[in-house]
Amino acid sequence: MEKLNAETARLTDEYSIRIGRWSQYAITEQLPFDAMWCVIPPGGSSQRDCHDEVELAVVVGGNADFEHAEDTPGAAERTEAAQGTAMLLGSNEPHIVHNRSTTEPLVVLSVYWPQQAPAPAASAGTEAGS
């Protein structure tokens, strides 16, 4: 059993927030995904991000707004996410995470993995017993 804690993680400044990549832990070779702690200061926001991986972002402390960051100005949608909420972000889905609090940091656990290629479709012309 391993205990992984955002409060004791080594954090670096990236994307205008503090990031604690799970590569700092010895267990990462055992995991089928990558992960990182994201700590956003009071009133702060991440930079716009867009990547090939699918991402599950879990709000573990605080309250967030997840912005679906369209390229068209004024077209962005925001979704509120309270502590305990998980947001599934698709591959190549541009997004920004905002901290709704002006006094407390926001802590998000980001788990991400490569998008799976779709399974080949079953042959439509097969008959039973052939």
Results as ranks from 00 to 15, higher is better:
31 L>Y: 12
22 W>Q: 01
57 A>K: 10
21 R>D: 06
77 E>P: 00
60 V>I: 15
5 N>K: 09
71 D>G: 13
40 I>L: 09
73 P>N: 07
88 L>T: 08
37 W>A: 02
68 H>W: 13
82 A>N: 10
48 R>V: 12
43 G>C: 06
33 F>G: 04
62 G>H: 11
27 I>M: 10
63 N>F: 01
73 P>R: 09
8 T>Q: 12
75 A>K: 14
36 M>F: 03
66 F>I: 15
43 G>I: 03
85 T>V: 13
51 H>L: 06
16 S>P: 00
67 E>F: 01
49 D>Q: 15
69 A>D: 12
35 A>N: 04
40 I>E: 04
32 P>N: 07
64 A>Y: 05
13 D>T: 08
12 T>P: 00
83 Q>F: 00
74 G>K: 11
60 V>W: 03
43 G>D: 07
86 A>D: 04
37 W>E: 02
77 E>W: 10
55 E>G: 04
59 V>T: 08
44 G>S: 03
50 C>L: 12
44 G>I: 03
45 S>C: 04
44 G>E: 01
86 A>L: 12
8 T>A: 09
23 S>N: 12
79 T>D: 01
53 E>V: 10
44 G>R: 03
49 D>N: 05
78 R>G: 02
88 L>N: 06
17 I>E: 02
10 R>K: 15
29 E>W: 04
49 D>G: 01
